[in-house]
Computed example of a mutant assay.
Amino acid sequence: MSWDDSQPAISAYQAGLHCRCPRCGRGPLFKGLLEVRPECEVCGLDLSKADSGDGPAVFIIMILGTVVVMLALLLESLASPALWVHMAIWPAVIIAGSIWMLRPAKALLIALQFKNKAEDTGQLDRDDTDTSGSH
């Protein structure tokens, strides 16, 4: 990914949490639920190579999983509901929480990549062509 040299007009945290363009902070970052727009509608920033990878999903799984397990244990210790109550509540909480948290997490990571001018060089740190057997 190659970002231009212009400074962002908004903090990376504000842009990320509001799911806005990391440069101007006004254009929407997403087209649909999680698809990043090819470019900002307002300032024209090329977002076609913006990629947050699996990082946001991993954080969401860890955070949401911890919260849901603690809440399920709390509910069980306070009310001891039937098993079907747990099966009705927690999948809905997990799905809604994942969707609600994943958009801003993905946008935040993209905004931080822009702010820090992170680039993918497309090169490996080691030489894979060495076939001599010596490492």
Rank of each mutant, 00 (worst) to 15 (best):
L71G: 07
I63V: 15
V36P: 02
L71P: 03
G44K: 09
H18Y: 07
G65Y: 07
A57N: 04
V69D: 04
G25M: 12
P22M: 02
V42L: 05
T66M: 14
L83K: 13
V68C: 15
L78E: 07
G55N: 11
G55Q: 11
F59V: 05
D54I: 15
R20S: 05
P38E: 09
V69H: 07
G65N: 06
G44W: 06
R23N: 02
I63M: 14
A82V: 09
G25I: 09
E76I: 06
C40Q: 02
F30C: 03
G27C: 02
A82S: 13
R20P: 00
S11V: 01
P38M: 06
R26Q: 06
E76T: 09
G53P: 04
I61R: 10
A72S: 10
D46P: 12
S80D: 08
W84V: 09
L78A: 05
S80V: 04
C43N: 01
A82N: 06
I61Q: 07
V42Y: 04
M62F: 15
V69T: 11
C21R: 04
S80W: 08
A79R: 12
A57T: 07
G53Y: 07
S80Y: 09
L34E: 00
V68E: 06
D51S: 15
C24Y: 03
E35D: 13
L74A: 02
G44E: 03
A9Y: 00
P8E: 01
A72M: 09
I10S: 01
M62A: 15
G44M: 05
A9R: 03
K31D: 02
I60C: 13
L33N: 08
D51R: 15
V42Q: 05
E39Y: 07
V58E: 05
G55S: 12
L47S: 03
C19L: 10
G65R: 11
G55W: 13
E41M: 05
Q7K: 14
P8F: 02
E35N: 15
S52G: 14
S6N: 10
R23G: 00
G32M: 08
S6A: 10
K31T: 10
A15I: 02
L17M: 14
L73S: 08
C43V: 00
C21T: 01
P81F: 13
A82M: 10
V68Y: 10
L83D: 11
C24A: 04
G32T: 07
L75H: 00
F30L: 03
L74D: 00
P56A: 14
K31S: 10
G16H: 04
I61C: 11
L17W: 08
T66H: 15
I10Q: 01
R26I: 00
E35H: 15
A79N: 05
R23L: 03
